[in-house]
Nucleic acid binder design. Structure first.
Lengths: 210, 210
DNA sequence: CAATTTCCATAACGACTGGTATATAATTTA
DNA sequence: TAAATTATATACCAGTCGTTATGGAAATTG
């Protein structure tokens, strides 16, 4: 069931045997990501996907396996391409810098007019029926990993004296996640960039320590 | 298309003409609410609903109209029965009291083992495809009304000196909404009550003024 | 060239979707 | 009791869901 993804439609490396693929796998995957991002996993039908990707269903199945495998590959793309700001955010010198970069990074992504509104992780985890439980688990696992990374960074920040004594790093990590999730929900509900900026400014003003 | 709902299965008031209904409308509606609350609007199939309600499809259509009308009635029930803590929260004497009661009220509701996990408004607005746009609009309108009520209350609180001078009531209202939405998402993701309590405690510690 | 391999397009699969037509059962009114 | 009215149960509707079988077209390999 393994599909080789090395067919970059641009650089035809080693001449394959049979008839060559007529579409670009990467571009099709990017299109699929946009659909999942807009409609969630179950809300995205194969008809939606094939239309956006510009290919037929058999081509999709041949190139990506099935809907679930396609989603997981789109999720990888999302994480690598849209969530890269998180790594640099966690590298900020102080906890306040981390919080600021995380919130502003999310703000920029949620408000970018080229992107669907909101966070794919929130959309896919909330809008997921019981029949796609493994999809939900995969998404939740990535969210949990992100929270763990935040918590580790905030715990270090506490050791470095970034916080008052009575500060709870776990609570703050949950708080960062909540503001992010709230921004995602509000962006999906149609909030303007100005409104979300106000939320970020307020949250940063409340943020404790340096 | 109007359905009279005065058939309290207990107190048979005015004897109706034909064959009497064999199920309790209120109990069936409560069961429907649980299904929508668990699965969202589109995720809840008519088969799910009829099974949970203990009635057949024709009975459902005769009593409630159609799926959309059933959802709107369930939404009314949700608001009256599960969101009543909001009114008393807004009546707290200080802004801090308002925030505390709102967060703790949401916490209790999201963690009550009898309830599905999370907020119906968040679930239904996030997990809503284009074909059910009017459902999404109805849910978003109620959320917007709730935010407006919070904002009015916080603006009054500022006039009454509950906040430092440079506090932005609109930002704080968005902040309250975000923490609430974040709690809902995290509850849906499987967070424990202890984790959500930590989020609430942290958020309250950050809350400005009295 | 022929043989092979792989892709694309059409069409279909069974299962499920929200919504109903029909027929029968149960009750009230006259 | 007879007529009228309403609820229930079964079965069905057209449409969509994710998925796949089939048949022909296009490329590489010998």
């Amino acid at each position: 069931m393994e599909i080789e993804t090395a067919t970059n439609a641009g650089s035809q490396a080693a001449a394959h045997k049979g008839r060559p693929r007529e579409f670009c796998v990467d571009a099709a995957l990017a299109a699929a990501l946009r659909v999942f991002w807009s409609k969630g996993y179950e809300g995205a039908s194969m008809a939606d996907l094939t239309e956006a990707m510009g290919i037929t269903k058999p081509s999709l199945y041949a190139a990506f396996g099935n809907k679930e495998a396609l989603f997981n590959k789109a999720l990888d793309l999302y994480e690598h391409e849209k969530l890269d700001y998180m790594q640099s955010a966690l590298a900020a010198p102080t906890a306040r810098g981390v919080a600021e970069r995380l919130m502003r990074g999310a703000l920029d992504m949620y408000c970018c007019p080229e992107n669907p509104n909101g966070c794919l992780g929130v959309i896919a985890s909330v809008a997921c029926g019981a029949e796609a439980e493994c999809i939900r688990q995969a998404v939740l696992e990535r969210g949990a990993a992100a929270k763990r990374a935040m918590l580790d960074r905030l715990a270090r920040a506490k050791d470095e004296g970034d916080f008052p004594e009575d500060t709870d790093p776990e609570g703050l990590a949950a708080f960062l996640m909540a503001v992010n999730q709230g921004m995602s929900v509000q962006a999906g509900a149609g909030a303007t960039r100005a409104e979300l900026e106000r939320l970020v400014e307020t949250s940063l003003k409340l943020w404790p320590g340096r």
